[in-house]
């Protein structure tokens, strides 16, 4: 497959029956009268990493809310299409039920429980699993992020941004997910910390957890993922193997604005980017 845009509806759910994983097909989400997602097809086969790229407001977070069952907190709803994980439907399920099926999200902005200690935050992540599994998960998390062991008794609100992100990912891992959803894990982090988080994601995947990664940092996301999807104004406008997307210039043109004659602003040809306020923060990282 080249880096050309696929016809949105024509994207077959890949993955095959032997690695079913997460399957999203024909998904439409509305917040009241506002349509946030339209006809989204996406697959995360078991054991893989998939990335969703897109500017602010493209619908990335909405996509994760639809999977996690938290649209209702924002007066949103799935109006058509399906979300299923390993054959069982997630659309319509409550957030807690989605967690029990093995799909756990580390939300955008980290959202650690600031008034609770680091140890209590991790415990909160393991409330849905039996004690013994929680103990095993804690070992895995502290092995992955040793700093969380050092800070165990501190209030989570007093951690640095990077540490909070580690805590948010660690907390999500406490439930022992089969699929981890990450919403902008490197947002607002220094490059070194972002690289650390990327390393952790790679390690988590190597341990057998599949990952759906939502990112603005396209370079990092494409390096981690096997397959990537570009969301623009609620639609998947581009998808394919990450290597191909990274090699082609379609992502750069559409998403990063590289190669546009006037590099001070995003590509003017795409109305989806007009007035989005999406700066080319990814540029430096793209070449880094």
């Amino acid at each position: 497959m080249s880096g050309e845009a696929d016809p949105p509806a024509g994207e077959p759910a890949s993955g095959g029956p032997e690695r079913p994983g997460l399957q999203i097909s024909g998904l439409e989400v509305r917040y009241g009268p506002v349509r946030a997602l339209r006809d989204v097809h996406l697959a995360v086969p078991d054991g893989s990493v998939a990335a969703v790229l897109g500017a602010n407001g493209a619908g990335k977070t909405t996509l994760l809310r639809a999977v996690s069952g938290t649209l209702r907190f924002h007066n949103g709803a799935i109006t058509s299409g399906t979300v299923s994980f390993r054959g069982s439907r997630l659309d319509g399920a409550h957030a807690a039920a989605v967690v029990r099926r093995g799909v756990v999200q580390a939300p955008e902005g980290r959202r650690v429980f600031a008034r609770m200690t680091v140890a209590e935050n991790l415990r909160a992540g393991a409330l849905s699993v039996p004690r013994r599994r929680a103990a095993a998960a804690r070992e895995r998390v502290l092995d992955l992020f040793p700093v969380l062991a050092e800070r165990a008794r501190q209030r989570a609100g007093l951690l640095s941004g990077g540490e909070q992100q580690m805590l948010a990912i660690g907390r999500a891992l406490m439930a022992g997910p089969s699929l981890l959803l990450l919403d902008e894990p490197t947002l607002g982090l220094a490059p070194l910390m972002a690289a650390k988080i990327a390393g952790a994601v790679r390690q988590i995947n190597a341990q057998g957890t599949s990952v759906l990664l939502v990112e603005q940092n396209a370079a990092m996301a494409l390096a981690l993922a096997e397959r990537a999807y570009v969301l623009e104004v609620g639609e998947v406008t581009l998808s394919g193997p990450s290597a191909e997307l990274a090699a082609g210039d379609e992502v750069r043109r559409r998403y990063l604005g590289i190669g546009a004659p006037n590099t001070d602003r995003p590509v003017g040809t795409d109305p989806g980017f007009a007035g989005e306020g999406h700066e080319r923060t990814g540029l430096a990282r793209w070449t880094a």
């Binding site: 807690a96 939300p107 008034r115």
Partner: peptide, 24 residues
């Protein structure tokens, strides 16, 4: 207790507590 942790997590951020599998 786990009940207390669930209660405090919900008090602080109900949506995130739900994302952690807490039954609100």
């Amino acid at each position: 207790t786990g009940w207390g942790v669930a209660m405090r997590a919900t008090a602080e951020d109900a949506e995130t507590a739900a994302l952690m599998g807490v039954r609100l």
